[in-house]
Simulated scan of single mutants.
Amino acid sequence: MQKRKKMDMTSYHQKYFRPSCLKALNLRFDNWEFFSPFSEKAHDQINLPPELTRTPEDTILNYFSVLREAENMGARSCGTVGQARTPFPIAYNFLSKEYQKILSYDDYLKSFAGIGHTSLIKLFRVPNRKKEIKFFYELETIEGFIDKRAEYFGYSYGYIQLIHEKEGFRISSLSKFEEDFLCAPYHGWNHDGESVLEVKYGSWCKLIQQMYPTAKDGYFKNIYFHGTDGADYCFIFVTLTNGTDVEIAQYRKVNNGSWIQVYMNPEKECLTENPLQ
């Protein structure tokens, strides 16, 4: 009798939970043993092992790995989903003490209403002159509600800031924006990086003298132009799952000098009224 091959759990998760082509990044705790010591504890009874938060990257990857199989969508006909609500009290302890004062555990739990599975599909550190620890992320979630017997995939993105506390790096703020799949086809210019620059810095600010070819690397876009002020500019965008380009950073270079990060706001600097409002 032929021996049955042991199931590759990574392939299993990718097959059933991942319709997109990007690999999930939050796969650190692909076992039941990690959650067992926390299963009967409330959020204020949990102390995270220090190795989970030694670096900013560890904190974020471990945070989303804990949340990967967290479920807050009501009873499902197939029985228990993932680790049910066990991961939420653990994940809450990745937040800084000050952040927890602003966001109670009950409100934190409510923010996951309708979510049954979470895959982290994009993560990178955002450059900034203030030396803040800031990351960009994108999530793919399986969502559904008890009054609608169907699940669907949702996509969102945002920014995470971290600080170092005595116990390690903790999340001090987290923003989240839901992605839409209808606005871009009908109102495309504000979703496409090249068009954004041509409209805002060309038509509004009269700053573009010549656009250069866009350099693409995976989901990153580096868009260059030569300015009417004699300087060169580079804008970095990241492309979301829904095709929208999100601006991440701006750089300016004069003659043969170095690229210097800048922070320009065309709505405030070039217009008296914001046409997007």
Rank of each mutant, 00 (worst) to 15 (best):
K148G: 05
K148P: 00
K148C: 07
K148M: 11
R149D: 03
R149M: 11
E151N: 14
Y152I: 05
Y157C: 00
Y159M: 13
Y159Q: 11
I160D: 02
I160M: 07
I160P: 03
I160C: 06
I160Y: 03
Q161N: 15
Q161S: 15
I163C: 10
I163V: 15
H164F: 06
H164M: 09
E165H: 08
E165A: 07
K166M: 05
K166T: 12
K166L: 03
K166E: 12
E167L: 15
E167V: 11
G168E: 10
G168V: 06
G168Y: 05
R170E: 04
I171Y: 03
S172I: 00
S173N: 09
S173F: 11
S173R: 11
S175H: 14
K176W: 02
K176I: 09
F177Y: 13
E178M: 01
D180S: 03
D180L: 14
D180A: 14
F181I: 07
F181D: 10
L182F: 13
L182P: 01
C183R: 14
C183S: 15
A184M: 14
A184P: 02
P185K: 01
P185V: 11
P185L: 10
Y186L: 04
Y186M: 04
H187T: 14
H187E: 10
G188P: 06
N190R: 14
G193Q: 06
G193N: 03
E194C: 11
S195M: 12
S195Y: 08
V196D: 03
L197H: 01
L197Q: 07
V199G: 03
K200S: 10
Y201A: 02
Y201V: 01
G202S: 08
G202Y: 01
S203W: 08
S203K: 13
W204K: 15
W204M: 05
C205H: 02
L207V: 02
L207M: 13
I208P: 01
I208F: 12
Q210L: 07
A215R: 06
K216F: 14
D217Y: 08
G218R: 14
Y219C: 02
I223M: 08
Y224H: 13
H226P: 00
H226M: 09
G227C: 12
T228V: 01
A231T: 08
A231L: 13
D232R: 11
F235Y: 15
I236V: 12
V238K: 02
V238E: 04
V238F: 06
